[in-house]
């Protein structure tokens, strides 16, 4: 077995400077969870199919299991732990709770990150736009009904309605 030298990576993580060491082949979700102890980012497949590991990399919504940790060099990462601030929930988080839009909750961090990204890009999405945006975030418990309602309601709140 070959041992590979670890790489030294500098990033901004949830608004704070963050440096870590990783193997060249290590995926970002693994480093977030197991090196940086940010286990809010979930791994449901590690093949980019379930969306539970959704994070923002600069302005892009990505599956962190499809990104090599080394690719984060010089970039800004936002995980679910960085959503909401100073003890205040983000409207997406508030509305997911209010609408009972989670059951087991394993997909919820990915939904939070993805829905926040949607509303920043499109403050007033239609139901269809919301459904297509979240089509990459699998939820096996809820049938999506309450999630879609919560995200659209969060949009209304953010628009001041």
């Amino acid at each position: 077995m070959t041992t590979q030298k670890k790489l030294h990576i500098s990033t901004t993580l949830n608004g704070e400077p963050c440096e870590f060491l990783c193997e060249p082949g290590q995926i970002l979700s693994d480093v977030l969870r197991n090196t940086l102890n940010l286990t809010g980012t979930k791994e449901g497949c590690t093949t980019g199919d379930c969306g539970a590991c959704s994070v923002m990399l600069d302005d892009a919504l990505v599956c962190s299991c499809l990104v090599l940790a080394a690719e984060a060099e010089g970039k800004s990462i936002e995980t679910v732990e960085g959503v909401g601030h100073e003890g205040q929930l983000h409207p997406v988080q508030e509305k997911l709770l209010e609408h009972a839009a989670l059951q087991c909750g394993i997909c919820t961090p990915g939904i939070v990150v993805a829905a926040k990204a949607l509303l920043e890009k499109n403050p007033d999405p239609s139901e269809e736009e919301t459904r297509y945006w979240l089509a990459g975030n699998l939820c096996r418990c809820t049938g999506y009904d309450k999630i879609i309602r919560a995200v659209m309601d969060a949009g209304a709140t953010m628009r001041g309605e």
Binding site: G40, L96, L97, A100, L102, G105
Partner: peptide, 23 residues
Amino acid sequence: SRPVRPDGLDKVTGRARYGADMN
């Protein structure tokens, strides 16, 4: 009635600890 679930805050913030979150 329909109160917010007591485990909800941990789940929407990523703090809830699932099977693979323990080391």
